[in-house]
Design a protein around this nucleic acid. Structure first.
Lengths: 62, 62
DNA sequence: CATAAATGTAAAACACCCTTTACATTATAC
DNA sequence: GTATAATGTAAAGGGTGTTTTACATTTATG
């Protein structure tokens, strides 16, 4: 599953730590998702979607 | 997290077993999601979204 | 270059999603 | 009303997402 987290985070000029704090997760979670170690939960996907104000489908693709 | 799985399944006149087979999961998974025991994975949420041809956001809400 | 900031790797612990199996309850049809 | 279909409950086990901690590497800044 692909995602645009790294790109979006850079658009917003955020560090992994800043984004992690904003989403209420740890930096490890951000790293793992950005580097495709695993997919986020649906809940976290929605948090990310809300934070970047984009539909889930625009950020995550199978 | 709320979802419209039961409503959608009934619109399509499907049993839990039929929907489970169509999505490649077990009936238990369908039951658990319909009855809000837990949320699906992002992957499964996408499968459901594709199957019912609706955005993930229309089916699942925080 | 040297220092700090940012990113990456690793591994253990825990929680949760999903499966499997088995049985109980509710709804449908004859 | 009884058989059957559909839905629900329960519990154990495997796999995976998230946290925590600690350290290594890369990138940015002076």
């Amino acid at each position: 599953m692909e995602n645009k987290l790294k790109e979006l985070r850079r658009e917003y000029n955020l560090t992994q730590e800043e984004l992690a704090r904003a989403l209420g997760v740890t930096r490890q979670t951000i790293i793992a998702i950005e580097n495709n170690k695993y997919d986020p939960t649906l809940r976290l996907a929605f948090k990310i979607s809300n934070f970047f104000k984009r539909p889930v489908e625009d950020i995550f693709k199978i």
